[in-house]
Amino acid sequence: MDSDGHADPPADDTARADGSGHRVPEGQAPEEYGDHRGHGEHDEPEHEHRSRWPFIAAIGAASLYGGFAFFIFGAETELVPRPIGIGLAVVGAAALLAGIGGWLNQAFLAPAREGQEPHKSRGSYVSTTMLFLTTDVSTFGGLFIYYFFIRVGTWPAAELPPLLGSLVVINTTLLVTSSITLHYAHEALGHGNRRRFLTLLCATLALGVVFLAGQAYEYYEFIIAEGFSLTSGIFGSAFFGLTGLHGFHVALGIGAIAILCWRALRGYYGPDRDTSIATVSLYWHFVDAVWLFLVVVLYVGASI
């Protein structure tokens, strides 16, 4: 006990203060011992990782695909009323868009509005995107397998319309060019060239919109002029199933690129802040690759 009446510390006590009143043994870092400063703040981001939006999007996608299946089944057999399939598809599409929109808002838009970085690391987002694209291969693969079974059966299909034309060439050129502009936009960002980055990113968005408009015009020509639609036999279901699924992916990609443009105009991106640019680029290049394979297999392959 000292002269002020306080007890002396034990002779073997080599602890030191960590700045918050806790005694930390000498030689041990505060985090190893259990630093409680801001404990609640550090735990909070972990809870934000648990999002309900991917689950909602998955249910929506299943309902959308199931609705199309019921619609085609009902059109061919009349065992299921077609409005059931249409209603299920509409509800599924709404749930899918809500899930994707909610996830994008939670992961990217909300942090951008608050001037914060996304809670996950760049590597986490990129690896998750790669995992999603790997699973998405099976989605397209199921429809391609369906088409391949048609090809090894009775061919040519009686309802086969003229597929190859200048519109397919133009659309393919637009989509390939958009992939190139997005690549060089990302490269310009890495070099700190903001003006070139914004120009190429906005050009990518415009090219994607024009491509989607071209596909809508192609559908108009087939359905109105040729009388060729989703219910025009097995080839019709394969053609509109594959091109429609791809067009849906393009529409989602356009929405994602539009968000990138909005954030880029706000000055959010930089050479070391490109997480969403990297993930959306992976998705867009995947959509581009699927289209090239689709053109070779479906448009060219069905015409020879």
Rank of each mutant, 00 (worst) to 15 (best):
Q116H: 13
I277K: 02
W284G: 05
H47K: 10
G142M: 11
Q106M: 05
G38A: 10
G27M: 07
S127H: 03
P81A: 07
Q215F: 06
H285Q: 10
F239H: 05
I234C: 05
T204V: 09
F148E: 10
E114D: 12
G27F: 04
Q215C: 08
T128H: 05
T173S: 07
L265F: 15
D4N: 08
L175M: 09
E78D: 15
A258I: 10
G236S: 03
H246A: 13
Q215V: 14
V137S: 08
S303I: 05
H285R: 04
A278V: 02
F222G: 08
T154V: 11
G19M: 07
S229R: 01
F222T: 09
I277R: 01
R52D: 09
D2C: 07
S281I: 00
P162L: 14
G165S: 10
I170S: 07
I145G: 02
L97K: 05
V280Y: 08
V209Y: 01
D288G: 09
F71H: 08
F248D: 01
G115D: 04
V24W: 08
Y217T: 13
H191K: 06
S179P: 11
V290F: 14
I84M: 14
T199Q: 12
F235I: 00
A157Y: 07
A89I: 13
S51N: 02
I100M: 14
G233E: 02
V295C: 11
P156S: 07
L88V: 15
F68R: 00
C202T: 12
L163R: 03
Y147F: 12
I72C: 06
A238F: 10
Y268S: 05
L174T: 04
S281F: 13
I170V: 14
G5L: 08
P54G: 08
P45W: 00
R195H: 11
A188Y: 02
A302E: 00
E226I: 02
H249A: 14
I277Q: 02
S166Y: 06
S127C: 02
F55N: 14
A206I: 15
R151H: 09
A107I: 00
A206E: 00
M130E: 12
W103P: 12
G102Y: 10
Q116Y: 07
Y65A: 13
V176F: 09
F248H: 06
I145S: 01
G255F: 01
